[in-house]
Nucleic acid binder design. Structure first.
Lengths: 249, 249
DNA sequence: CAGTGGTCTAGACCACCTT
DNA sequence: AGGTGGTCTAGACCACTGA
């Protein structure tokens, strides 16, 4: 329990010329990134947060509303306000037009799981030192026994030792819940980048297409709430099964 | 000037169980789509809007704030609240990595401008009857005399007669301001769809690549504020100069 | 039932733009 | 100077959740 004297009060934030709500928002973002609330425990109720910041409840509600709109927080009437996990609603993956029922998760088959050392590309992607230990997993995604996506996944060691040693059947089709269970790491956000490349011989064989067929490559960096890169992933799928839509306004 | 009796009051909106702010928002969206304010004339001031809806200014401000966040309205302190044109900040076009200074508009060269009749694909894309009149323009975009994008643009006639007859030098590199000037049509929003195709012989020649090179195709449907499709556009660029990023949270 | 977030109000004061 | 949107407050009442 905090005393009022410990609390930063309305003076928080770097630039006192900023509006009050902006400074409060910055401070809340800082505390979320610091892991003060972990996704299962709610933030303090509005009234108590407003008191501790010494602002009116209306101003605090404006800040919480903005953070909810941005997908950082999730508000549930009667229950409380929670830090949200990354939802991957916007993920580019979803735009491979594959034959399969809506809402179902495709089958996944882990082809390999081997320790590696970081080359310069991976060291940069994961923000680790050259030559440090990584876990590399290669996975195939399939609909009705028909492969449509190859995933190469790299995780830093020793942080993910538990994933390296877990029974493969413990991992299941969704890896992020497994990371949380085994290594206590939660995905807070991610960045994906799309590009088009020609299939290597290996990729072509796995996807049963001709070599040099155009593939869509999606590179994903997944971050913790604190902003540390926890996973780097490259996925390749056949380009002519890919459609992506954007709304502009 | 409206009398209070004419105004819909707080009872507007289809479902009276909806919160007040949601019903007001629906009504404002309807009036925006109906073209009640055209982008240069401001909406009535907050106080007068709140009075005419018989709601408090705080509730009205909430609605206007949401519409501004969604990019529908633009608020300018001291000036007023305006309906926004489409900004194309999110356009997929921007992700062709071309050599050229930031912020500059690439050169454009109109290769052809011919009347056509709508085939089934174009009729569906522009929501017009099969066989109705269209204007087809083909345009090349270049950086330093190096072509990187082919654009095929279709406009419904007779609405865009003025564009069909204007001097080509009147069109300039940006078409949407020209549509507004010549045909009094403003873009309110747009949808873009990305796919990957193989270059035809003609496309390959124009872009000086080998036939069957992978191209990124971007199909764009541009809409008026009223939701009518005013332009359909297909653009093709070399796929390996394309990079697209998405943030996920 | 107590506690949470959701809605709505009424009004004060400030910062900015136009005239 | 007058009018616009921007900030902030204080409080009433409602709807939902969980024990």
């Amino acid at each position: 329990m905090k005393s009022i004297e410990e609390d930063p009060g309305p003076g928080v934030g770097p630039d006192p010329r900023l509006p009050l709500h902006a400074r409060i928002k910055d401070d809340l973002l800082r505390r979320i990134r610091a892991g003060e609330w972990n996704g299962t425990t709610p933030l303090p109720p509005e009234s108590s947060l407003a008191d501790s910041y010494e602002i009116s409840i209306g101003t605090l509600r404006r800040v919480l509303g903005e953070l909810a709109t941005e997908g950082i927080l999730e508000r549930q009437q009667g229950r409380g306000t929670f830090v949200r996990r990354a939802s991957f609603q916007n993920s580019l993956y979803r735009f491979f037009r594959v034959q399969g029922q809506e809402g179902q998760t495709p089958l996944s088959r882990i082809l390999s799981r081997t320790p590696e050392t970081a080359d310069s590309v991976l060291a940069a992607a994961l923000n680790v030192r050259l030559g440090s230990g990584l876990l590399h997993m290669r996975r195939l995604r399939l609909w009705n026994e028909h492969p449509f996506l190859i995933e190469d996944i790299w995780l830093p060691l020793p942080r993910f030792d538990a994933v390296a040693q877990a029974d493969l059947s413990d991992l299941g089709p969704l890896l992020y819940p497994a990371y949380e269970r085994l290594a206590c790491v939660v995905v807070g956000s991610a960045t994906e980048e799309l590009s088009v490349v020609a299939a290597t011989a290996t990729q072509a064989a796995l996807l049963s297409v001709a070599p040099d067929t155009a593939l869509v490559r999606i590179s994903r960096s997944a971050l913790t709430h604190a902003g540390e890169i926890m996973e780097y992933r490259e996925s390749h799928g056949v380009a002519n099964s890919f459609r992506y839509r954007v709304e502009i306004s």
